[in-house]
Design a protein around this nucleic acid. Structure first.
Length: 444
RNA sequence: UCCCCGGUAGCUCAGCAGGUAGAGCGGGUGGCUGUUAACCACUUGGUCGGCGGUUCGAGUCCGUCCCGGGGAGCCA
Protein backbone atom coordinates (compact mmCIF):
# COMPACT_ATOMS: atom_id res chain seq x y z
CA UNK A 1 0.00 0.00 0.00
CA UNK A 2 1.28 3.42 -0.84
CA UNK A 3 0.54 6.40 1.28
CA UNK A 4 -0.50 9.79 -0.04
CA UNK A 5 2.95 11.35 -0.21
CA UNK A 6 4.68 8.30 -1.66
CA UNK A 7 2.42 8.09 -4.67
CA UNK A 8 4.04 8.96 -7.95
CA UNK A 9 3.22 12.37 -9.29
CA UNK A 10 1.11 11.01 -12.10
CA UNK A 11 -1.43 9.57 -9.71
CA UNK A 12 -2.41 12.77 -7.98
CA UNK A 13 -3.02 14.60 -11.18
CA UNK A 14 -6.34 15.85 -12.41
CA UNK A 15 -7.92 13.59 -15.04
CA UNK A 16 -6.09 13.39 -18.36
CA UNK A 17 -7.94 14.91 -21.28
CA UNK A 18 -7.51 14.68 -25.04
CA UNK A 19 -6.99 18.10 -26.56
CA UNK A 20 -9.65 17.35 -29.16
CA UNK A 21 -12.23 16.97 -26.37
CA UNK A 22 -11.40 20.04 -24.29
CA UNK A 23 -14.80 21.55 -25.06
CA UNK A 24 -16.28 19.01 -22.66
CA UNK A 25 -13.95 20.17 -19.87
CA UNK A 26 -14.44 23.94 -19.88
CA UNK A 27 -14.10 25.28 -16.36
CA UNK A 28 -12.46 22.08 -15.08
CA UNK A 29 -8.84 21.37 -14.27
CA UNK A 30 -7.28 18.65 -16.44
CA UNK A 31 -3.91 17.16 -17.36
CA UNK A 32 -2.61 17.45 -20.89
CA UNK A 33 0.16 15.08 -21.93
CA UNK A 34 2.07 15.82 -25.07
CA UNK A 35 4.85 17.61 -26.89
CA UNK A 36 5.78 21.24 -27.34
CA UNK A 37 4.72 22.43 -30.76
CA UNK A 38 5.49 26.09 -30.31
CA UNK A 39 6.89 28.48 -27.70
CA UNK A 40 6.45 32.20 -27.23
CA UNK A 41 7.30 34.49 -24.38
CA UNK A 42 6.31 37.99 -23.56
CA UNK A 43 8.14 38.39 -20.30
CA UNK A 44 5.80 37.65 -17.45
CA UNK A 45 3.24 35.93 -19.70
CA UNK A 46 4.40 32.87 -21.56
CA UNK A 47 2.65 30.76 -24.17
CA UNK A 48 3.25 27.25 -25.31
CA UNK A 49 1.31 25.27 -27.87
CA UNK A 50 1.13 21.58 -27.04
CA UNK A 51 0.35 18.67 -29.34
CA UNK A 52 -1.04 15.37 -28.08
CA UNK A 53 -1.99 13.67 -31.34
CA UNK A 54 -5.63 14.67 -31.09
CA UNK A 55 -5.05 18.37 -31.52
CA UNK A 56 -3.22 21.50 -30.48
CA UNK A 57 -3.89 23.68 -27.49
CA UNK A 58 -2.24 26.82 -26.23
CA UNK A 59 -1.20 26.91 -22.62
CA UNK A 60 -0.80 30.23 -20.87
CA UNK A 61 1.67 30.69 -18.01
CA UNK A 62 1.21 33.79 -15.90
CA UNK A 63 3.85 34.49 -13.30
CA UNK A 64 2.45 33.93 -9.83
CA UNK A 65 -0.36 31.58 -10.91
CA UNK A 66 1.80 28.48 -10.86
CA UNK A 67 4.79 27.40 -8.80
CA UNK A 68 7.86 29.56 -9.49
CA UNK A 69 9.83 26.41 -10.30
CA UNK A 70 7.32 25.40 -12.98
CA UNK A 71 7.20 28.92 -14.41
CA UNK A 72 10.99 28.88 -14.65
CA UNK A 73 10.94 25.47 -16.31
CA UNK A 74 9.37 27.12 -19.34
CA UNK A 75 12.71 28.74 -20.16
CA UNK A 76 14.36 25.34 -20.51
CA UNK A 77 11.74 23.98 -22.90
CA UNK A 78 12.60 23.45 -26.54
CA UNK A 79 10.59 22.38 -29.56
CA UNK A 80 9.26 18.82 -29.13
CA UNK A 81 9.91 18.70 -25.40
CA UNK A 82 7.57 16.14 -23.86
CA UNK A 83 5.66 17.29 -20.83
CA UNK A 84 2.59 17.14 -18.66
CA UNK A 85 0.57 20.27 -18.11
CA UNK A 86 -2.13 20.84 -15.56
CA UNK A 87 -4.51 23.68 -15.82
CA UNK A 88 -8.01 24.99 -16.13
CA UNK A 89 -9.72 24.81 -19.50
CA UNK A 90 -11.40 27.93 -20.70
CA UNK A 91 -12.94 29.20 -23.88
CA UNK A 92 -10.71 31.86 -25.36
CA UNK A 93 -11.43 33.54 -28.66
CA UNK A 94 -7.79 34.65 -29.07
CA UNK A 95 -6.48 31.07 -28.90
CA UNK A 96 -6.28 28.83 -31.98
CA UNK A 97 -8.99 26.22 -31.63
CA UNK A 98 -11.09 28.38 -29.32
CA UNK A 99 -9.85 26.90 -26.03
CA UNK A 100 -6.79 27.37 -23.94
CA UNK A 101 -5.27 26.09 -20.77
CA UNK A 102 -4.47 28.33 -17.82
CA UNK A 103 -1.45 26.37 -16.68
CA UNK A 104 -1.10 25.66 -12.96
CA UNK A 105 1.63 23.05 -13.21
CA UNK A 106 4.26 22.25 -15.82
CA UNK A 107 6.36 19.11 -15.63
CA UNK A 108 8.88 18.55 -18.42
CA UNK A 109 9.50 14.86 -19.10
CA UNK A 110 12.26 15.17 -21.68
CA UNK A 111 13.89 18.24 -23.15
CA UNK A 112 15.54 17.65 -26.53
CA UNK A 113 18.47 19.56 -27.95
CA UNK A 114 18.42 20.74 -31.56
CA UNK A 115 15.20 19.29 -32.92
CA UNK A 116 16.01 19.27 -36.62
CA UNK A 117 12.64 20.25 -38.08
CA UNK A 118 11.71 23.89 -37.64
CA UNK A 119 8.41 25.56 -38.50
CA UNK A 120 10.16 27.08 -41.51
CA UNK A 121 10.73 25.63 -44.94
CA UNK A 122 12.56 22.41 -45.60
CA UNK A 123 13.46 20.55 -48.76
CA UNK A 124 11.98 17.20 -49.70
CA UNK A 125 15.24 15.31 -49.25
CA UNK A 126 15.77 16.68 -45.75
CA UNK A 127 12.22 15.91 -44.71
CA UNK A 128 12.37 12.40 -46.14
CA UNK A 129 15.58 11.75 -44.20
CA UNK A 130 13.67 12.80 -41.08
CA UNK A 131 10.41 11.09 -41.95
CA UNK A 132 10.21 9.63 -38.43
CA UNK A 133 10.05 13.19 -37.05
CA UNK A 134 8.26 14.75 -40.01
CA UNK A 135 5.21 12.64 -39.12
CA UNK A 136 4.70 14.96 -36.14
CA UNK A 137 3.82 17.91 -38.34
CA UNK A 138 0.15 18.88 -38.64
CA UNK A 139 0.14 18.20 -42.37
CA UNK A 140 1.54 14.72 -42.05
CA UNK A 141 -0.78 13.92 -39.17
CA UNK A 142 -3.71 14.99 -41.34
CA UNK A 143 -2.59 12.72 -44.18
CA UNK A 144 -2.21 9.76 -41.83
CA UNK A 145 -5.72 10.34 -40.52
CA UNK A 146 -7.17 10.49 -44.01
CA UNK A 147 -5.33 7.27 -44.82
CA UNK A 148 -6.79 5.66 -41.71
CA UNK A 149 -10.26 6.72 -42.77
CA UNK A 150 -9.74 5.35 -46.29
CA UNK A 151 -8.52 2.00 -44.96
CA UNK A 152 -11.42 1.65 -42.56
CA UNK A 153 -13.88 2.66 -45.27
CA UNK A 154 -12.53 -0.11 -47.51
CA UNK A 155 -12.94 -2.71 -44.79
CA UNK A 156 -16.44 -1.50 -43.89
CA UNK A 157 -17.49 -1.45 -47.53
CA UNK A 158 -16.52 -5.04 -48.15
CA UNK A 159 -17.72 -6.29 -44.79
CA UNK A 160 -21.13 -4.70 -45.37
CA UNK A 161 -21.44 -6.55 -48.70
CA UNK A 162 -20.59 -9.98 -47.35
CA UNK A 163 -16.99 -10.07 -48.51
CA UNK A 164 -14.69 -12.08 -46.26
CA UNK A 165 -11.22 -10.80 -45.48
CA UNK A 166 -8.65 -13.36 -46.61
CA UNK A 167 -4.99 -12.62 -46.01
CA UNK A 168 -2.79 -13.62 -48.91
CA UNK A 169 0.89 -14.52 -48.54
CA UNK A 170 3.66 -11.99 -48.83
CA UNK A 171 6.38 -14.56 -49.50
CA UNK A 172 5.60 -16.33 -52.74
CA UNK A 173 7.38 -19.12 -54.59
CA UNK A 174 7.28 -17.61 -58.08
CA UNK A 175 6.55 -14.57 -60.06
CA UNK A 176 2.86 -14.42 -60.87
CA UNK A 177 3.96 -13.06 -64.19
CA UNK A 178 7.34 -13.09 -65.77
CA UNK A 179 7.32 -9.49 -66.94
CA UNK A 180 7.78 -7.52 -63.75
CA UNK A 181 10.76 -7.42 -61.49
CA UNK A 182 10.24 -8.82 -58.03
CA UNK A 183 12.12 -8.46 -54.80
CA UNK A 184 14.01 -11.66 -54.24
CA UNK A 185 15.05 -13.11 -50.93
CA UNK A 186 16.60 -16.33 -49.65
CA UNK A 187 14.06 -18.73 -48.27
CA UNK A 188 16.02 -20.78 -45.74
CA UNK A 189 17.38 -23.82 -47.57
CA UNK A 190 14.61 -23.98 -50.16
CA UNK A 191 16.09 -21.54 -52.61
CA UNK A 192 14.52 -18.20 -53.47
CA UNK A 193 11.29 -16.57 -52.45
CA UNK A 194 9.75 -13.40 -53.85
CA UNK A 195 7.80 -10.62 -52.19
CA UNK A 196 4.23 -10.58 -53.40
CA UNK A 197 3.30 -8.17 -56.15
CA UNK A 198 -0.40 -9.00 -55.81
CA UNK A 199 -2.66 -11.22 -53.77
CA UNK A 200 -4.91 -11.83 -56.73
CA UNK A 201 -4.11 -15.41 -57.66
CA UNK A 202 -4.50 -16.54 -54.06
CA UNK A 203 -7.64 -14.48 -53.74
CA UNK A 204 -9.12 -16.32 -56.73
CA UNK A 205 -8.60 -19.56 -54.81
CA UNK A 206 -10.31 -18.08 -51.76
CA UNK A 207 -13.22 -16.84 -53.89
CA UNK A 208 -13.87 -20.42 -54.96
CA UNK A 209 -14.18 -21.29 -51.26
CA UNK A 210 -16.00 -18.27 -49.87
CA UNK A 211 -17.64 -16.61 -52.87
CA UNK A 212 -16.82 -13.02 -52.14
CA UNK A 213 -13.43 -12.18 -50.64
CA UNK A 214 -10.94 -9.35 -50.31
CA UNK A 215 -7.44 -8.83 -49.06
CA UNK A 216 -5.66 -5.76 -47.75
CA UNK A 217 -1.94 -5.63 -47.48
CA UNK A 218 1.41 -4.51 -48.77
CA UNK A 219 2.66 -5.33 -52.25
CA UNK A 220 6.13 -5.01 -53.64
CA UNK A 221 7.41 -3.96 -57.04
CA UNK A 222 11.10 -3.85 -57.79
CA UNK A 223 10.70 -1.78 -60.92
CA UNK A 224 12.99 1.18 -61.26
CA UNK A 225 10.08 3.55 -61.58
CA UNK A 226 10.94 7.04 -60.53
CA UNK A 227 7.74 9.04 -60.68
CA UNK A 228 5.30 10.73 -58.35
CA UNK A 229 2.92 7.77 -58.68
CA UNK A 230 5.26 4.93 -57.74
CA UNK A 231 6.49 3.26 -54.57
CA UNK A 232 8.40 0.00 -54.31
CA UNK A 233 6.23 -0.98 -51.34
CA UNK A 234 2.61 0.05 -51.40
CA UNK A 235 -0.72 -1.07 -50.02
CA UNK A 236 -3.47 -2.52 -52.10
CA UNK A 237 -6.98 -3.63 -51.33
CA UNK A 238 -8.04 -6.37 -53.71
CA UNK A 239 -11.44 -7.97 -54.16
CA UNK A 240 -12.43 -11.16 -55.93
CA UNK A 241 -15.94 -12.49 -56.41
CA UNK A 242 -17.18 -15.75 -57.88
CA UNK A 243 -19.81 -15.39 -60.63
CA UNK A 244 -19.13 -11.64 -61.00
CA UNK A 245 -18.91 -10.29 -64.53
CA UNK A 246 -16.90 -7.30 -65.69
CA UNK A 247 -19.95 -5.05 -65.31
CA UNK A 248 -20.53 -6.20 -61.76
CA UNK A 249 -16.93 -5.69 -60.77
CA UNK A 250 -16.95 -2.20 -62.29
CA UNK A 251 -19.99 -1.40 -60.14
CA UNK A 252 -18.20 -2.79 -57.12
CA UNK A 253 -15.08 -0.70 -57.70
CA UNK A 254 -17.12 2.41 -58.43
CA UNK A 255 -19.06 1.91 -55.20
CA UNK A 256 -15.90 1.43 -53.18
CA UNK A 257 -14.23 4.61 -54.41
CA UNK A 258 -17.41 6.64 -53.99
CA UNK A 259 -17.84 5.28 -50.46
CA UNK A 260 -14.25 6.02 -49.46
CA UNK A 261 -14.58 9.58 -50.75
CA UNK A 262 -17.86 10.11 -48.89
CA UNK A 263 -16.41 8.77 -45.65
CA UNK A 264 -13.41 11.07 -45.86
CA UNK A 265 -15.71 14.01 -46.58
CA UNK A 266 -17.92 13.03 -43.67
CA UNK A 267 -15.23 12.40 -41.07
CA UNK A 268 -12.04 14.14 -42.15
CA UNK A 269 -13.06 17.67 -43.11
CA UNK A 270 -10.70 19.31 -40.62
CA UNK A 271 -7.79 17.31 -42.00
CA UNK A 272 -8.68 18.23 -45.59
CA UNK A 273 -8.73 21.84 -44.46
CA UNK A 274 -5.25 21.54 -42.91
CA UNK A 275 -4.12 20.10 -46.25
CA UNK A 276 -5.82 23.02 -48.03
CA UNK A 277 -7.64 20.50 -50.18
CA UNK A 278 -10.44 21.97 -52.27
CA UNK A 279 -13.32 19.64 -51.41
CA UNK A 280 -15.58 20.73 -54.28
CA UNK A 281 -14.05 18.23 -56.75
CA UNK A 282 -14.42 15.48 -54.15
CA UNK A 283 -18.05 16.28 -53.50
CA UNK A 284 -18.73 15.66 -57.19
CA UNK A 285 -17.52 12.08 -56.88
CA UNK A 286 -20.85 10.26 -56.71
CA UNK A 287 -21.97 7.32 -58.86
CA UNK A 288 -22.39 6.73 -61.67
CA UNK A 289 -18.86 7.30 -62.94
CA UNK A 290 -18.34 7.76 -66.68
CA UNK A 291 -17.39 4.59 -68.56
CA UNK A 292 -15.60 4.58 -71.86
CA UNK A 293 -13.95 1.81 -73.83
CA UNK A 294 -10.28 1.72 -74.69
CA UNK A 295 -11.29 2.41 -78.29
CA UNK A 296 -13.20 5.56 -77.30
CA UNK A 297 -10.30 6.69 -75.15
CA UNK A 298 -7.92 6.21 -78.06
CA UNK A 299 -10.20 8.23 -80.35
CA UNK A 300 -10.35 11.02 -77.79
CA UNK A 301 -6.55 11.05 -77.52
CA UNK A 302 -6.11 11.20 -81.28
CA UNK A 303 -8.61 14.08 -81.45
CA UNK A 304 -6.47 15.90 -78.92
CA UNK A 305 -3.44 15.43 -81.13
CA UNK A 306 -1.91 12.61 -79.10
CA UNK A 307 -0.83 10.10 -81.72
CA UNK A 308 -1.16 6.55 -80.46
CA UNK A 309 -1.45 3.25 -82.22
CA UNK A 310 -4.13 0.73 -81.29
CA UNK A 311 -2.71 -1.89 -78.95
CA UNK A 312 -0.47 0.34 -76.87
CA UNK A 313 -1.11 0.81 -73.18
CA UNK A 314 -1.62 4.33 -71.86
CA UNK A 315 1.23 6.09 -70.08
CA UNK A 316 0.95 8.69 -67.36
CA UNK A 317 0.45 11.55 -69.83
CA UNK A 318 -2.32 9.72 -71.66
CA UNK A 319 -4.09 8.85 -68.42
CA UNK A 320 -4.02 12.48 -67.38
CA UNK A 321 -5.39 13.63 -70.74
CA UNK A 322 -8.23 11.10 -70.62
CA UNK A 323 -9.20 11.88 -67.04
CA UNK A 324 -9.15 15.64 -67.58
CA UNK A 325 -12.33 15.35 -69.64
CA UNK A 326 -14.30 14.24 -66.57
CA UNK A 327 -14.97 15.60 -63.10
CA UNK A 328 -15.27 12.10 -61.66
CA UNK A 329 -13.06 9.04 -61.87
CA UNK A 330 -13.46 7.45 -65.29
CA UNK A 331 -13.67 3.72 -65.95
CA UNK A 332 -11.79 2.73 -69.09
CA UNK A 333 -12.70 -0.80 -70.11
CA UNK A 334 -11.83 -3.41 -72.72
CA UNK A 335 -8.16 -2.78 -73.49
CA UNK A 336 -6.43 -4.82 -76.19
CA UNK A 337 -5.51 -8.18 -74.73
CA UNK A 338 -1.97 -7.82 -76.05
CA UNK A 339 -1.12 -5.14 -73.47
CA UNK A 340 -2.83 -6.86 -70.55
CA UNK A 341 -2.22 -9.81 -68.29
CA UNK A 342 -2.53 -13.49 -69.14
CA UNK A 343 -5.42 -14.18 -66.79
CA UNK A 344 -7.89 -11.72 -68.28
CA UNK A 345 -10.94 -13.11 -70.05
CA UNK A 346 -11.38 -12.20 -73.70
CA UNK A 347 -14.45 -10.24 -74.71
CA UNK A 348 -16.71 -12.77 -76.47
CA UNK A 349 -17.91 -9.97 -78.79
CA UNK A 350 -14.36 -8.91 -79.70
CA UNK A 351 -11.78 -11.55 -78.82
CA UNK A 352 -8.89 -9.13 -79.33
CA UNK A 353 -10.13 -7.20 -76.29
CA UNK A 354 -9.85 -8.11 -72.63
CA UNK A 355 -12.76 -7.87 -70.20
CA UNK A 356 -10.82 -5.49 -68.03
CA UNK A 357 -11.11 -2.05 -66.51
CA UNK A 358 -8.83 0.69 -65.23
CA UNK A 359 -10.22 3.48 -63.10
CA UNK A 360 -8.41 6.77 -63.65
CA UNK A 361 -8.65 9.34 -60.89
CA UNK A 362 -9.38 12.98 -61.76
CA UNK A 363 -6.84 15.79 -61.52
CA UNK A 364 -4.03 13.76 -63.04
CA UNK A 365 -3.68 11.19 -60.26
CA UNK A 366 -3.65 8.29 -62.69
CA UNK A 367 -4.79 4.72 -62.37
CA UNK A 368 -6.23 3.92 -58.96
CA UNK A 369 -8.04 0.69 -59.82
CA UNK A 370 -7.25 -2.17 -62.16
CA UNK A 371 -9.57 -5.10 -62.56
CA UNK A 372 -10.88 -7.75 -64.89
CA UNK A 373 -12.98 -10.79 -65.44
CA UNK A 374 -10.69 -13.80 -65.18
CA UNK A 375 -10.21 -16.63 -67.61
CA UNK A 376 -12.45 -19.46 -66.41
CA UNK A 377 -11.62 -22.18 -68.91
CA UNK A 378 -8.64 -24.46 -68.30
CA UNK A 379 -7.63 -24.88 -71.94
CA UNK A 380 -7.82 -21.18 -72.61
CA UNK A 381 -5.68 -20.49 -69.56
CA UNK A 382 -3.12 -23.09 -70.60
CA UNK A 383 -2.90 -21.47 -74.02
CA UNK A 384 -2.41 -18.07 -72.37
CA UNK A 385 0.45 -19.32 -70.27
CA UNK A 386 2.11 -20.52 -73.42
CA UNK A 387 1.53 -17.21 -75.22
CA UNK A 388 3.06 -15.31 -72.33
CA UNK A 389 5.87 -17.87 -72.00
CA UNK A 390 5.02 -18.56 -68.38
CA UNK A 391 5.94 -21.87 -66.76
CA UNK A 392 2.98 -24.10 -66.02
CA UNK A 393 4.41 -26.15 -63.18
CA UNK A 394 4.51 -23.49 -60.42
CA UNK A 395 0.96 -22.47 -61.32
CA UNK A 396 -0.58 -25.93 -61.19
CA UNK A 397 -2.47 -24.96 -58.05
CA UNK A 398 -3.91 -21.97 -59.90
CA UNK A 399 -4.90 -24.19 -62.81
CA UNK A 400 -6.66 -26.49 -60.35
CA UNK A 401 -9.18 -23.71 -59.78
CA UNK A 402 -10.24 -24.30 -63.40
CA UNK A 403 -10.23 -28.08 -62.99
CA UNK A 404 -12.56 -28.28 -60.02
CA UNK A 405 -15.79 -26.37 -60.40
CA UNK A 406 -14.58 -23.40 -62.40
CA UNK A 407 -16.96 -20.42 -62.57
CA UNK A 408 -16.83 -16.98 -64.14
CA UNK A 409 -15.30 -14.59 -61.66
CA UNK A 410 -13.88 -11.12 -61.50
CA UNK A 411 -11.86 -8.89 -59.27
CA UNK A 412 -9.92 -5.70 -58.95
CA UNK A 413 -7.16 -4.04 -56.96
CA UNK A 414 -7.12 -0.50 -55.61
CA UNK A 415 -3.91 1.32 -54.76
CA UNK A 416 -4.31 2.91 -51.35
CA UNK A 417 -1.55 5.51 -51.67
CA UNK A 418 -2.77 6.79 -55.02
CA UNK A 419 -6.28 7.11 -53.61
CA UNK A 420 -5.00 8.90 -50.50
CA UNK A 421 -2.73 11.15 -52.57
CA UNK A 422 -5.69 12.14 -54.72
CA UNK A 423 -8.02 12.76 -51.78
CA UNK A 424 -5.38 14.82 -49.98
CA UNK A 425 -4.25 16.64 -53.10
CA UNK A 426 -0.63 15.50 -52.66
CA UNK A 427 1.94 16.04 -55.36
CA UNK A 428 3.61 12.69 -54.71
CA UNK A 429 2.44 9.34 -53.29
CA UNK A 430 5.46 9.23 -50.96
CA UNK A 431 3.58 11.38 -48.44
CA UNK A 432 0.56 9.07 -48.51
CA UNK A 433 2.37 6.24 -46.68
CA UNK A 434 4.03 6.61 -43.26
CA UNK A 435 7.43 5.29 -44.28
CA UNK A 436 7.77 5.32 -48.06
CA UNK A 437 10.01 2.88 -49.88
CA UNK A 438 11.29 4.36 -53.09
CA UNK A 439 13.75 3.49 -55.80
CA UNK A 440 16.59 5.19 -53.95
CA UNK A 441 15.23 5.40 -50.45
CA UNK A 442 15.04 2.78 -47.74
CA UNK A 443 15.75 5.02 -44.71
CA UNK A 444 14.30 5.50 -42.16
C1' U B 1 18.97 2.62 -67.89
C1' C B 2 18.34 7.63 -70.27
C1' C B 3 17.40 13.13 -70.11
C1' C B 4 17.14 17.79 -67.18
C1' C B 5 18.19 20.53 -62.56
C1' G B 6 20.82 20.82 -58.09
C1' G B 7 24.75 19.95 -53.78
C1' U B 8 27.57 26.84 -50.14
C1' A B 9 26.22 27.65 -42.01
C1' G B 10 21.74 23.01 -38.34
C1' C B 11 17.57 24.55 -42.30
C1' U B 12 16.06 27.56 -46.87
C1' C B 13 18.96 30.05 -50.16
C1' A B 14 22.15 34.36 -52.47
C1' G B 15 27.13 34.76 -54.16
C1' C B 16 27.63 39.33 -60.89
C1' A B 17 32.93 38.55 -65.54
C1' G B 18 37.68 33.71 -61.41
C1' G B 19 40.22 37.78 -56.51
C1' U B 20 39.84 34.16 -50.65
C1' A B 21 31.94 33.71 -48.17
C1' G B 22 26.67 36.40 -47.09
C1' A B 23 21.23 36.84 -45.69
C1' G B 24 16.88 34.97 -43.40
C1' C B 25 15.46 31.28 -40.13
C1' G B 26 17.34 28.13 -36.18
C1' G B 27 20.81 28.00 -31.71
C1' G B 28 22.79 31.27 -27.53
C1' U B 29 22.38 35.90 -24.30
C1' G B 30 19.37 39.97 -22.73
C1' G B 31 14.46 42.74 -22.92
C1' C B 32 9.02 42.76 -23.04
C1' U B 33 2.13 40.96 -18.64
C1' G B 34 -1.91 38.35 -24.52
C1' U B 35 1.59 36.19 -28.00
C1' U B 36 -0.42 33.85 -32.93
C1' A B 37 5.64 31.78 -38.16
C1' A B 38 5.33 37.32 -31.92
C1' C B 39 8.65 41.35 -31.66
C1' C B 40 13.48 44.23 -30.41
C1' A B 41 18.92 44.20 -29.48
C1' C B 42 23.38 41.55 -29.37
C1' U B 43 25.73 36.94 -30.59
C1' U B 44 27.15 31.97 -32.46
C1' G B 45 27.82 29.73 -36.72
C1' G B 46 31.39 27.04 -43.02
C1' U B 47 36.63 20.90 -45.16
C1' C B 48 31.55 25.83 -50.57
C1' G B 49 29.62 17.10 -51.95
C1' G B 50 34.62 13.98 -53.05
C1' C B 51 38.93 13.56 -56.13
C1' G B 52 41.82 15.45 -60.08
C1' G B 53 42.93 19.46 -63.64
C1' U B 54 43.45 24.77 -65.74
C1' U B 55 45.18 29.38 -63.32
C1' C B 56 49.48 33.84 -59.87
C1' G B 57 44.64 32.80 -57.67
C1' A B 58 38.70 28.34 -58.11
C1' G B 59 32.41 28.37 -54.38
C1' U B 60 32.85 30.26 -59.54
C1' C B 61 35.98 27.20 -65.35
C1' C B 62 37.02 21.79 -67.12
C1' G B 63 36.97 16.31 -66.19
C1' U B 64 35.25 12.45 -63.17
C1' C B 65 32.75 10.10 -59.25
C1' C B 66 29.07 10.28 -55.25
C1' C B 67 24.41 12.04 -53.41
C1' G B 68 19.56 14.45 -53.94
C1' G B 69 15.30 16.36 -56.83
C1' G B 70 12.22 16.34 -61.37
C1' G B 71 10.83 13.61 -65.72
C1' A B 72 10.97 9.39 -69.27
C1' G B 73 11.12 4.32 -69.93
C1' C B 74 9.25 0.48 -67.09
C1' C B 75 4.96 -0.40 -64.10
C1' A B 76 -1.09 -7.55 -64.50
Amino acid sequence: MTTEDQRPKTEDRPPAADIARLAAHVGRTVSIRGWVHHLRSSGKVRFLVVRDGTGLVQGVLVKGRLPEEDFAAFDRLTLESSLILEGQVRAEARAPGGFELEVTRLEPLHIPQDYPISPKEHGVGFLMDHRHLWLRSPRQQAILKVRDEVCRACRDYFHDRGFVLVDTPILTPTACEGTTSLFETDYLDRGKAYLSQSGQLYLEAAAMALGRVYCFGPTFRAEKSKTRRHLTEFWMVEAEAAFYTLDEVMNLAEGLVAFAVSRVLAHRRPELQILERDVAPLEAVVPPFPRISYGEALTRLNEQGKEMAWGEDFGGDEETLISQAFDKPVLVHRYPRQCKAFYMEADPDAPELALCVDMLAPEGYGEIVGGSQRVADLDVLLARLEEHRLPQEPLEWYLDLRRYGSVPHSGFGLGIERLVAWLCGLKHVREAIPFPRLLDRLYP
